[in-house]
Design a protein around this nucleic acid. Structure first.
Length: 783
DNA sequence: GAGCACTGC
């Protein structure tokens, strides 16, 4: 029904648009009369029909000084003569964001840059193309939400239009566009969503994929999809924007499309390497900071390290060492930066360097010590020196045993390049690489290993099926995933009932594909009404999915060789292996005991899923009060985000007429029904307690341990788990007590005993099955 | 009894 209403609105808007264009024609008509007209400056905005503001001309003058402006005519000509065009250069250098989970905060804090860059200009050039018709609609994708928002706002300003009207953006939770919109910035995942409803993307005349070199999962899927669409739509044009490193690969993939180089970065950066390899990169980084501070001209320093503890440690050591130098040097301020840092602390990176201690004294310097959050997601102006030890923490996924872990690994050349670029934002800079030039050339991988090759593809396969791609094996991936990964995904979807035995999308699968969740979770949600607890499952899903933003999906950096030898690496004690902890519960260093006690108050003896439900309920009962969150060591941002997700899920449930219901809270079945519903989605993630006292995952037979963060007060015979992580041991995290009988009731096709490796769990299930048979016989006999 | 790279729908 909501689609129906939407259609009516857009019909209305088409009428409205026609009215606008007649008005426009009239305005332009009166304007172009007379031979002298072309010499006059254009004063009427052709998109709005309004007179341009003074500010428009001020910005225009600056835009005209940009190097890319020189290439406008050439660009338009190449675009006219070709269906696909690849632009290479330093993309993505014109965005600035501040860290925050809250979109409102972000909007208030986005700072306007004084420099203008390629991705703001190219779409505007496209709109000026006369060969695309009167009001061609242009889409421009970005891998990150904030980029889509901030760039579109900037462009709306440059075009002298209101954001959300002619220029807009569309991201999850927020569609700021209208029927008037001719240029829409959106996340790559969002364009993929649009393609699910409109497979030929017919509303667009031009699609621009920015930051294509980042190779996000969504971008990779769009590549293959758009290649198909371009064949079916000769009128559609595609512009791919990428960094230079793999330009030829892109060209080869897009059938020899023309390459055009565009200038990007404003200032040169001088690169320095060490003569010999460094044994201790942390020590070397601190030493380099001190040297820069003593010997180099003023300018802030950015140091890349791998994790919170290392960063805090480095900040302390830097401050100590510089203080030891006394009056010989100016004052410094060492500022840590990582994603879990409270926002108030994060703000510190934008504070100016400290002033000289006395008038005419040595200048101060700001030293930002950061994870690779500062590599792509966040830009800090004023950085002149970058220190790059060459490592970052990267997530590794092994599809064979479905285990993920985080490990400190060497970065890629592309990543090193990106890091050094951070030095040249405001003036010429210097980058100190704490490895040898030989090592850079020979040891670092050229590119970020694409996400699609190291991800669980169950969700992607479901999306592709929904997009009408039946033959996954012959789908034109730029880097085809391993056949086993695809097979594994198909198998999981078949067990969940999303695909039938021929691999075709079922009705259930179609509904599941509409949820922005992984398939197990959407299955659980879709069937939860059958267990009379969809309200509660909604809350749990929202909480889990909010946590999964942090710990389940996608992994980013380069690591192909690591991947190939991952098993060996896991065995290696040299490499630091860390896990990712969900952040719904806050545990400050100075109040760990109080935080644990607060958490225990929410604990549910049957498991962590139910504990999450308790937290959500308590949050709502306390009117989402931030001070209540603070007092109870609850991360308010996480809860707010979960609530946001929940609302979106409710809307999708309504679209498919899925009932919202709850079991009576006083009923004995209230929690039983919830636990059963969990199993309906996650029946493939069950572990059994062996007589030895260890848990074994069912079917995979991996020895696992309950993560100590769990809140069970006993060791249940059967548990369902949300994730399996490898840190110091094999852990299953977020676990809930379930009953063996439910396995054979709810997922008999998975627990069929025929393709089941022999183990204790199998023998227990066999007993349960025969007991079930016997019970059936008994009841029959009684009758 | 563990220890927090980064994003997307």
């Amino acid at each position: 029904m909501s689609t129906e209403r939407k259609r009516k609105v857009s019909l209305f808007d088409v009428v409205d648009e026609a009215a606008v264009s007649t008005k426009l024609a009239r305005v332009n008509g009166s304007f172009t009369v007379g031979a002298a007209a072309p010499l006059l400056p254009v004063t009427i905005n052709r998109w709005t029909g309004r007179t341009y503001s003074q500010r428009y001309f001020e910005i225009l003058d600056k835009r005209k000084t940009l190097p890319v402006w020189q290439q406008k005519d050439e660009f338009l000509q190449v675009l006219r003569d070709n269906q696909t065009l690849i632009l290479v250069g330093e993309t993505g250098s014109g965005k600035t964001t501040q860290i925050s989970c809250d979109l409102d905060d972000l909007l208030a804090e986005i700072r306007v840059l004084t420099a203008y860059f390629v991705i703001e200009q190219i779409p505007q050039f496209v709109l000026e193309a006369d060969f695309l018709g009167k009001r061609p609609m242009v889409a421009c994708t970005q891998p990150r939400r904030v980029a889509a928002m901030s760039v579109s706002r900037r462009v709306a300003e440059e075009m002298d239009v209101t954001i959300g009207e002619e220029v807009g953006y569309s991201i999850r939770f927020e569609d700021c566009s209208s029927a008037k919109t001719i240029l829409k910035y959106l996340t790559d995942g969002m364009l993929l969503r649009e393609a699910m409803a409109d497979p030929l993307l017919e509303r667009y005349k031009v699609i621009i994929l920015d930051e294509a070199h980042e190779r996000t999962l969504a971008t990779d899927v769009l590549f293959g999809l758009l290649k198909e669409v371009l064949r079916n739509r000769p009128d559609l044009k595609l512009v791919v924007m990428s960094a230079t490193l793999e330009a030829e690969k892109f060209q080869g993939y897009f059938n020899g499309a023309p390459l055009m180089k565009v200038p990007g970065r404003l200032h040169p950066v001088e690169i320095f390497y060490t003569q010999d390899p460094e044994r201790d990169y942390l020590e070397a980084a601190i030493r380099t900071v001190v040297q820069i501070h003593m010997c180099e001209t003023p300018g802030d320093i950015l140091v890349f390290l791998t994790g919170e503890e290392e960063i805090e440690d480095a900040c302390r050591k830097i401050t100590k060492e510089i203080n030891n130098l006394g009056d010989q040097v100016g004052p410094i301020k060492a500022v840590p930066l990582y994603s879990t840092l409270p926002p108030a602390m994060q703000q510190k990176i934008f504070e100016p360097a400290p002033a000289p201690l006395k008038e005419g004294g040595l200048p101060g310097r700001k030293i930002v010590v950061s994870t690779n959050i500062a590599e792509t997601s966040l830009t800090i102006d004023g950085i002149v020196y970058v220190i790059d030890p060459g490592f970052s923490k990267q997530k590794v996924y092994n599809p064979r045993i479905r285990v993920e872990s985080l490990l400190v690994s060497p970065i890629s050349k592309a990543s090193a390049h990106q890091r050094s670029g951070r030095a040249g934002r405001t003036q010429p800079g210097k980058c100190f690489r704490l490895y040898t030039e030989k090592s850079f050339n020979n040891d670092l991988q050229p590119q970020t290993y694409p996400e699609i090759l190291r991800s669980n593809l169950a969700n992607t396969v479901l999306t592709l099926k929904k997009l009408g791609i039946d033959d996954l094996v012959h789908f034109d991936f730029m880097d085809p995933p391993a056949p086993e990964t695809l097979m594994r995904a198909l198998e999981v979807l078949n067990y969940l009932g999303a695909l039938d035995d021929d691999g075709n999308l079922t009705k259930l699968g179609e509904i599941m594909s509409e949820f922005p969740l992984d398939p197990q979770m959407s299955k659980m949600l879709v069937v939860s009404a059958e267990f009379n607890c969809s309200n509660e499952i909604l809350s749990i899903s929202a909480m889990l999915s909010e946590l999964q933003f942090l710990n389940y999906f996608l992994m980013k950096q380069c690591w192909s060789r690591l991947y190939a030898s991952a098993d060996l690496l896991w065995a290696s004690s040299v490499i630091t292996i860390l896990s990712i902890v969900p952040n719904c519960f806050v545990r400050p260093r100075d109040a760990q005991k109080a935080a644990d006690e607060a958490k225990a108050r929410f604990g549910h003896i049957d498991g962590d899923h139910l504990t999450l439900l308790n937290v959500y309920h308590a949050y709502k009962q306390n009117n989402e009060d931030p001070s209540w969150c603070f007092d109870n060591f609850i991360n308010q941002r996480a809860l707010k985000a979960a609530d946001n997700v929940r609302q979106q899920l409710v809307r999708i449930m309504a679209r498919f007429n899925l009932k919202l219901c709850s079991t009576d809270f006083n009923s004995r079945d209230y929690y039983v029904n919830i636990r059963k519903a969990l199993l309906a989605g996650y029946f493939m993630q069950v572990a059994h307690l062996e007589r030895t006292g260890h848990y074994l995952t069912v079917k995979d037979n991996q020895v696992v341990h309950l993560h100590p963060s769990n809140c069970l007060d006993h060791k249940p015979e059967w548990v369902i788990y949300n994730e399996y992580v490898l840190t110091s041991r094999n852990f299953i995290r977020t676990v809930t007590d379930i009953r063996g009988e439910w396995l054979i009731d709810i997922a008999p096709h998975y627990y069929d005993l025929i393709n089941f490796p022999s183990c204790e769990a199998k023998r227990v299930l066999e007993r349960l099955y025969s007991k079930r048979e016997k019970d059936k016989q008994d009841t029959k006999n009684k009758k």
